[in-house]
Design a protein around this nucleic acid. Structure first.
Lengths: 229, 229, 229, 229
DNA sequence: GTTTAAGCGAGACGGTACGTCCAGTCTTTCA
DNA sequence: TGAAAGACTGGACGTACCGTCTCGCTTAAAC
């Protein structure tokens, strides 16, 4: 999160994820810092240009040439820090969303926990053009497992983890049966929203979000299990 | 319908692809059939080449140049019948799947109806590489409303309609409440499967399909959910 | 001239250039004339469309597709009568010029003969866009000897022949030496005008035409021959 | 001039094609020379391929695709330096002719000056396939004024200028009248040769060149022509 | 009056080239 | 050593013609 760790170890200053193994042993968190330092300005300009293109004209408009030109940067500089335009777009979108973190509240009610978690996100994501951008990232992920993992790690898992925690608390409270398969439950919660988001057959309204969560919760709470074999 | 067939609609909605001209006897002698007739050989070769590329190397490999070369056909011929490579891929995939039509059986049990409808499809679609292909088509749909509509018309609506019919029968039988919001229920049924299919965070196993359908049905049968917001 | 004889023998009526060898021996100039007769309307429409394109947008705009569409005619019909678009353009231009035949007058003065022959033509040809069209036809002729011969036969030789006759009359009158090389003299007369026409370095004005003819005549009349070896 | 060299002007007017960068010592260090330097190898390969195609198969065979393939170069590289295939062909032909510069000698006799200037060129140009190539360039020039200017600047003006100088010397010597219209005289000298070259009605032989020059000089020396219109 | 044969409109088709755009890589100079 | 500049390969894009072809319809002379 701090430094999003694109490509290899591009975070020489602070919270080094991959401190070079041959560091001076006692120089604690201070990379030796040789050569010209990375341009913070260039970095920001690239992300800004990519964000702009991504949100206004879609992933396919995020071409390295155009980003470089808009950011006043050379293509080589982009390639130095991001291996593909998809990973650049990923980070651009991520930084765009940094405000809307999955804020989990423990309200004591599973339903309220989920609504407070999911509704803000559904509103954000349901407002064009995020649905389109996400679909394009998902498509890009199909051909690149590493990118797929990165996408899930940043965009899917955090929210899924928050909902998972809420479900576990509900289980401990006895609000849902102890034998509920939580991963399936999570898919039952998020699946319908993503479905509308990506397929666009209907709009992702607040009402839909509420109804889908309620219906899913009904299913999760169980009551009877499969009526027939 | 007879044979105007330029660009779109060169394969009908969901039923037989090429009604033999000698069919209903009283059909009004429809098209006078002018000009050189369309080459069936070329048509098939194009779809075969596109299918092959699509399934083995993904949508991005379906390039007009390569399809043309493999099909022994000129690019102009492809463009005459398909406006974009996406629409070509769509039809190629559709013809690939023509065997697996959404066969709906009326078993008298909603759960059995749904399982018999969804499991074969989930097996097909969960077997690589269909998930990837579908994700790519969905991505392409984001930037092209017409294409999105066509995709939904051919791939989403037929199965949704089949499930909708099953739900309506169940409602008439009193198996589910009369006030169930059917479109939401449909998203609860299909959403989780598409979610795994597209995000790939977990595999779409038979067991998952069964569990997700059961859980969704529980939610749809409802009764205990929070009566008020 | 009567029937311009494009392609093979499309002039069944009159002055048949290629009477079929198996003709009835005594049926003199009357082809048997079987099948549907040639459409005069189509013929005219094709030439009109070709002329229009040729004069307004140049030879490169005379494409078979566009001519066919404009003339409301099928491409096959054009190809039936003209082997290439160049030959079509040639005939279109020729019919466009049919009014301005090389009218030769015998004024008794070589200079007056030539001026009366050449000035009207120079005016016509110097008015855009004929220069461009002629240049394009000449270029097309470079790669196709048959077309080159046809071009010369229709556009160059008639005027050259008229001037040749004037020179011969002048020679008989003693106005120019008997040993003048007439073919060279013709090039001296026409060459400068074509030069300006095709290269466009200067305009083909009336004054230029007069001066060039005068200077050429001076050279032709001779007086002294090469001053030195 | 130094090396801005985009599109046009990537070969100088009429003199040395690539002045070595270390030339005049006091040249103001002109271009800072940023970025990857242009590939000399690619440049030469492109011109060589274009020349080959041009001379052996004509201008229409100089297609960007084929030149790129033969030169082992990408099309984009060609388009970076030449806007059209015509301009490429122009420069290819020019470089092909770089040896045969218009060498003017001051022999003291106008006729000898002209013969020494024109005969080598007429021999070169009269040897196939240069006539065809020149005709095709002239045709291309009709639709593109910029190209026409470039063509004249490189191929026509230098020789015209050389002849103009010879005429002026002759005028100063009193060998031709002071009131001769030099531009017309130049057309009288070059016109006949171009005429045969482009129309191909007769061959451009040494004898023809001599006779045409003699006849033209007679006309230029003048004196006896009709004093009044 | 029925052949027979050509003319014709329509339009599909295989090819070829166009000019543009983008992904990635590489080579240079400057900071 | 990072960054800017920008040349370069490779490949796909979508369009436009060319010249050929396969149809079915029309028109008239020949039988």
């Amino acid at each position: 999160m701090g430094e999003p760790a694109a490509k290899t170890a591009n975070a020489p200053a602070g919270t080094a994820a991959d401190v070079p193994a041959d560091a001076p042993a006692d120089a604690p968190a201070d990379a030796p810092q040789r050569g010209r330092p990375r341009s913070h300005r260039a970095h920001q300009a690239i992300l800004a240009a990519a964000s702009d293109l991504l949100l206004n004209r879609g992933l396919s408009a995020v071409s390295m040439d155009v980003v470089a030109e808009r950011a006043g940067v050379s293509k080589a500089t982009i390639y130095r820090w991001w291996p593909t335009k998809e990973s650049l777009a990923l980070e651009a979108l991520f930084s765009e969303w940094s405000a809307v973190q999955p804020a989990v509240r423990d309200t004591g009610s599973l339903r309220d926990d989920l609504v407070s978690l999911i509704r803000p996100w559904a509103r954000l994501v349901g407002s064009r053009p995020y649905g389109a951008v996400i679909a394009q990232l998902i498509a890009a992920a199909q051909a690149d497992p590493a990118f797929a993992a990165e996408y899930r790690r940043r965009f899917v898992e955090p929210r899924r983890e928050a909902a998972r925690a809420a479900l576990q608390r509900a289980e401990e409270r006895g609000e849902i049966p102890a034998d509920v398969r939580i991963e399936v439950a999570l898919d039952l919660i998020y699946g319908p929203i993503y479905h509308r988001l990506l397929h666009g057959h209907e709009a992702v309204t607040d009402r839909f979000v509420k109804e889908a969560i309620d219906m899913a919760l009904n299913g999760i709470r169980g009551r009877s299990g499969p009526a027939t074999a």
